[in-house]
């Protein structure tokens, strides 16, 4: 087994010279960052992060694909997804009968994504944003109609979409990406 323990010791630091050196180094690095801050702050409402496509954001139902199996409600760890009974008219046969449809309650949802992953027909999918505004708690409890539309994304309307890429020297670097409505 290559994993080994390695005895280490704390480097010595007592003595007037070491202390002096430590002070100078600390101030020097402070001055260095003062002149070259390498910031990565997101100025939030003016800019927003365009998250990747695989981000686990809000969940949208595609009712056309839904086979009413109820797996999503069964696996939901927070009991956010529940099934409601609604009439459904089969386009081929024209028959109407009651079926169970999933709706989500965002008061409870923890965005674990189990429901999306367990859906056998990909009827559920995530949108790649999470900054959505609800006026009240009742509105967070989705209806079957609102669950089928992607929620409104307010920051995309006025903000500039950016994405962070990882850089060797600066850590996170903010770059502008396509998208947004402005």
């Amino acid at each position: 087994m290559p994993v080994e323990f390695a005895e280490k010791t704390v480097p010595p630091g007592r003595g007037i010279f070491k202390r002096f050196k430590g002070n100078i180094e600390a101030i020097a690095i402070g001055v260095k960052y003062f002149f070259d801050p390498k910031r990565s702050t997101l100025i939030y409402p003016k800019e927003y992060i365009k998250l990747r496509e695989n981000y686990r954001g809000f969940i949208v139902l595609n009712a056309k694909k839904c086979i009413n199996c109820g797996s999503c409600a069964r696996i939901c760890p927070a009991a956010a997804m529940k099934l409601i009974r609604r009439p459904y008219t089969d386009p081929k046969t024209g028959k109407t009968r009651m079926k169970l449809w999933p709706v989500i309650n965002y008061n409870r949802c923890i965005f674990c994504g189990y429901c999306v992953d367990v859906c056998p027909t990909e009827a559920l999918h995530h949108v790649n944003y999470h900054d959505v505004v609800f006026d009240n708690m009742e509105e967070m409890d989705q209806t079957l109609e609102s669950f089928q539309q992607a929620p409104e994304h307010p920051t995309a309307k006025e903000g500039i979409p950016v994405r962070y890429i990882i850089d060797e020297e600066k850590g996170l670097v903010k770059v502008r990406v396509e998208g947004g409505e402005q």
Binding site: M1, V3, T9
Partner: peptide, 20 residues
């Protein structure tokens, strides 16, 4: 190291230990 799990026993790293 003592009870390796997953692939930790196939990777090459060391575990630092300090005495102070």
């Amino acid at each position: 190291k003592n009870h390796p799990y997953e692939v930790y026993d196939e990777l090459d790293f060391e575990i630092p230990v300090f005495q102070e």
